Simulated scan of single mutants.
Amino acid sequence: MKRSHLAREVIETVLLTLLIFFVIRFVIQSYHVEGVSMVPSLQNDEYVLVNKAIYLLHPPERGDVIVFHNPTNTSVDFIKRVIGVPGDTVQVDANHISINGVQLDEPYISSPATQVTNTWKISPGKYFVLGDNRPVSDDSRYWGCVPQSYIVGQAVAVYWPTKSWEFISTYSSVYAHVKTGQATTTSGAQSC
């Protein structure tokens, strides 16, 4: 009797462990930051935790730092900040970013300088993303918007190296004055 009870407990423990493992693998993923496109927010060689389930509850929001499949090569994942959401008009000039006519004051960028000046109207189901290190970032300015189906999840915390441990800020106050659904109509806006 004791032997069957012990066997049952071992089986239950193994099954519970496997269940917890698969739930965690479904919800959380590690991502290795390669390159300097997100400096100063994220450094080369840092590791971040990615919440893969968050966008089952709500769509990505402006300011979220997301991991996604590169639209030009889906076998490679990138990490960037969401700047524009569906319905927005994003305008980029040499030193400023405006969303729906509201100029952003971005404390998280390394430099506002950009070689690309253009205006994009964000299509349904797509997101305009930029690296925080604008002068060197390969992002939506060059290859367009990211389809929602390419988004892996939201980067929520740096966990390695341990001295760099921190939650990743979305800087929601930067986008507080931008109104959704009030996109400016700009002639010549490129559809994204």
Rank of each mutant, 00 (worst) to 15 (best):
N44Y: 01
S187Q: 12
I122F: 05
H96E: 09
K126P: 02
Q148Y: 13
P147N: 13
R134T: 04
Q103V: 14
P112D: 06
V50S: 07
D93I: 03
P60L: 01
G84C: 06
Y127W: 08
K80I: 03
Y142H: 15
Q190N: 12
F128E: 02
E61W: 06
Y31F: 15
D93K: 06
A94C: 06
H58M: 10
V67W: 04
V129P: 05
K163L: 09
G181A: 01
V116A: 04
I99H: 00
L19G: 08
Y47C: 11
N51K: 10
V129G: 04
V85F: 00
S75L: 12
R25T: 11
V116M: 04
E106L: 03
K2G: 12
E166I: 07
S98R: 10
V136L: 08
P147D: 15
G144E: 01
D64I: 06
T185L: 13
I11C: 10
S173H: 11
V39P: 05
K2D: 06
S111M: 04
K52A: 09
G101Q: 02
S98F: 03
L49K: 09
M38Q: 01
S123N: 09
P60K: 00
Q154V: 05
A157Q: 08
F21L: 14
R141F: 02
P60W: 00
S30Y: 10
